[in-house]
């Protein structure tokens, strides 16, 4: 990265640079959407092929934990949005505080997710780890496989997000990231976090609420 307050090499003015950064970040998010898109397509196809079994399998998931987790992620998104707002106003401490709150909510999400996995393990529903004989049938096994792979992939994204937000908070409080010159870094990380939230917003009804 260039020094704070300076326009980086290929750019001529700060506004052009900001727009380019935002555009680049959004295109990256578009690729993330398409990445999960392949997974969603697979989930939809399985649902079209086996409408009844998928609904049954979905009913056995802990929709309540999922709902709480959705609430947690939505709230963390609010915290990140407030952090970006603070960062734009060059309030580094305040921004860091919100970021820590968002990261903490992210950790809570992961904790609940782990709790959910362990409950499913006890019920014999967690593929790879559980005995496949305990599934009610092959399609439930398949559905739970898709569940594990999509929530697992999402959890990896959340973990990356928590590390990003935490690191950002540290750099803000330590003064390594000067505001408002480098506000774009906070904005970009924020966008990433929101997108992880959006992906969950779709995963939740598709997986937990198929009835």
């Amino acid at each position: 990265m260039a020094e704070p307050g300076f326009v980086r090499e290929p750019f001529r003015e700060i506004r052009q640079q900001h727009e380019a950064d935002m555009l680049g970040m959004y295109i990256f998010l578009a690729t993330e959407i398409m990445l999960f898109g392949g997974l969603f397509a697979a989930i939809f196809v399985v649902r079209v092929l086996h409408p009844i079994e998928v609904v049954e399998a979905s009913r056995r998931l802990h929709y309540f934990i999922g709902a709480i987790n959705t609430g947690i992620l939505l709230s963390s998104s609010l915290a990140v949005a407030l952090a970006v707002q603070a960062a734009r106003a060059a309030l580094a401490r305040r921004a860091a505080l919100f970021l820590v709150a968002a990261a903490a909510l992210g950790v809570a999400f992961l904790g609940l997710k782990a709790l959910e996995y362990s409950k499913e393990y006890d019920e014999g529903l967690l593929p790879v780890f559980s005995d496949p004989g305990r599934f009610s049938g092959p399609v439930e096994h398949l559905f739970m496989n898709l569940y594990l792979i999509s929530t697992g992939l999402h959890a990896i994204h959340v973990t990356i997000g928590v590390l990003l937000l935490g690191g950002l908070a540290l750099r803000l409080t330590g003064g390594a990231l000067r505001l408002p010159d480098r506000v774009i870094v906070v904005e970009a990380c924020g966008l990433y976090w929101h997108l992880v939230d959006v992906i969950w917003v779709f995963l939740y009804p598709v997986l937990y609420l198929a009835r």
Partner: peptide, 17 residues
């Protein structure tokens, strides 16, 4: 559920992002 998810995503994109 997809319509509601779309509405949520729209809110997140429009305001938070």
């Amino acid at each position: 559920s997809l319509a509601i998810a779309l509405a949520k995503a729209a809110l997140i994109f429009w305001f938070f992002m």
